[in-house]
Amino acid sequence: MQLAVRSISKVYGPEKGLFPVSFDVKVGEVVAIVGHNGAGKSTLLKMLSNWIQPDYGDITINGLNLKNRQAVVKIIGFVPEVPNLFDFFSVGYNLKLFALLFGAPLSRVDQILEEFNLLSFKKAKVRTLSKGLRQRVSIGRSLIADPAFLLLDEPTSGLDVDMTREVYRMMIQMHKVGRTILFTTHRPEEIKNLATRILAFSKGVLMFDGTPADYFQTPLYKNSSPQL
């Protein structure tokens, strides 16, 4: 299964947004999308997840255009930076609602909860959970329909060390079972530990597409902020 991005762009203003970009992602790759704030990382991810529509260009998965939402909705799972869960309800309810909407068996809910060590929080209200736990629930929910592609927007943003490690463990686990992962990040250790490929953006333009090892040798990385 291959993701093909062809000349997509979304312009909000001069030097703001994402300028025409094309690339392919093969099955099993873990792609880190990096760049400064406002570089276009989240815009790209939101276009891939159908949250926003590109001004121009096409995105296809195995020839299926992303505009045909119904055809691709079970193929792509998206985890936004801020988990968009139903706060009033329990963890179990959140997962069950999406299982029903996807037509997935309800046994999938317990399977996900077990997989992500969330069984003990099944009846806990989402609003009572820490940010890290919410993020785990959000990742779990995105996997309800067993999608081949998983998109994560800064999955460890604002998490403490333990929760960050837990998210890394989950991402590695998902990669092992053959899922293709694209994620945005600001953290060099995430790129080193998780990514098999880097897409680096600057001011909405794709500046680098290659392996992490090559990326860390480029002036793009060396001239970037101390964090990157």
Binding site: S49, N50, W51, R69, Q70, V73, K74, G77, F78, P80, V82, N84, L85, F86, D87, F98, L101, F102, G103, S142, A145
Partner: peptide, 14 residues
């Protein structure tokens, strides 16, 4: 506001 509509539109709901 909480982007819950977008979450629902990530499912087969239109």
């Amino acid at each position: 506001e909480k982007k819950l509509i977008l979450a629902l539109l990530q499912t087969p709901i239109n």
